[in-house]
């Protein structure tokens, strides 16, 4: 295995483009090292991107949007006071991944590019409308998070492309987000079901919403039917029931060691309701 520590994304991209065999980028390493250790994936080329300038920065832009370096860890996100105020659901989703120790290393980009449909930060990012800046040999492009995973362990990134920044929209007024997942323990599990909800209110009425489901299909889903179920409502019981039904209907899960089809389908609806209530309360300015 070759190990590289480039100092720019252009260099990282070039290294990946000319590499043969399996190439992996190393950010937090919490997935790459597990796969390496268990002989699941032994990269021929491993490119550590943490020596690149700025990858550890959290920046609030003038328009209220946020740019996060790709090596920003979950712990750094949780410790950032303003980011959590704007996007509590997203920060909490990231914080749910692994232990305190894993939080010291794990990154949003890594969680996304690992390609797991159960990745906790991904439904929250999709709901929030997060995009990734991707650097390739021909320059950079901006890609919506939901367009990156294409199946378990697979992404739409081309050879030589590397995620170079995380872009989180401006929170704006009267908005709130939330992410909930189901795990059998209290910590240290992979989501059996995950639900991210992001919405905006006009008065008591929901005017915008994005609802995303994790671990219920080969990729994280952005479910328009869920959003439609609550847009225009005040999140009354009827809207919540419609939301739950839409969430369950969108599920296309598998039976596996973590859960059953029936369970995931049912609990997706339960969590969608609970997450929507939290997001709604946050949009109302209630401190949750």
């Amino acid at each position: 295995m070759e190990f590289h520590s480039p100092t720019s994304f252009a260099e990282a991209s070039a290294l990946a483009a000319k590499a043969t065999g399996i190439t992996r980028f190393l950010a937090g390493g919490t997935d790459v090292l597990v796969q390496l250790r268990s002989d699941l994936v032994t990269p021929d080329t491993l490119i550590d991107i943490k020596k690149i300038d700025g990858v550890g920065k959290i920046t609030c832009n003038a328009d209220g949007s946020w740019t996060l370096g790709v090596a920003v860890t979950g712990a750094e996100m949780s410790e950032h006071p303003e980011l959590g105020r704007d996007w509590p659901g997203l920060v909490e989703a990231m914080d749910l991944i692994g232990s305190t120790q894993v939080q010291g290393r794990a990154t949003l980009a890594g969680n996304l590019c690992n390609g797991s449909p159960a990745a906790d930060s991904v439904p929250a990012m999709v709901a929030a409308g997060v995009t990734m800046t991707v650097t390739g040999e021909d320059g950079t492009r901006e890609v919506a998070v939901e367009d990156i995973p294409t199946g378990p362990g697979k992404t739409s990134l081309a050879k030589g492309e590397v995620v170079s920044a995380v872009n989180i929209p401006a929170r704006g007024d009267n908005g709130g987000d939330a992410y909930l997942r189901f795990i059998p323990r209290t910590e240290m599990d992979i989501a059996v079901v995950g639900v991210g909800v992001n919405l905006r209110l006009d008065g008591d009425t929901i005017t915008e919403a994005r609802v995303s489901l994790g671990a219920v299909a080969p990729t994280v889903l952005l479910v328009d039917a869920c959003a439609e179920a609550i847009i225009g409502s005040t999140l009354d019981d009827a809207a919540l029931d419609a939301l739950a039904a839409a969430a369950s209907a969108a599920c296309n899960p598998i039976d596996d060691k973590r859960g059953t089809i029936t369970f995931r389908t049912e609990v997706a609806g339960v969590l969608a309701k609970r997450a929507a209530k939290i997001a709604y309360a946050r949009a109302k300015g209630e401190d949750l």
């Binding site: 268990s38 323990r185 209290t186 910590e187 240290m188 599990d189 992979i190 060691k257």
Partner: peptide, 16 residues
Amino acid sequence: LQNSIFLDYRIPVASD
């Protein structure tokens, strides 16, 4: 065996 790591073989953690 499908769950041969501690992530999937779920022994109680402190917060449980």
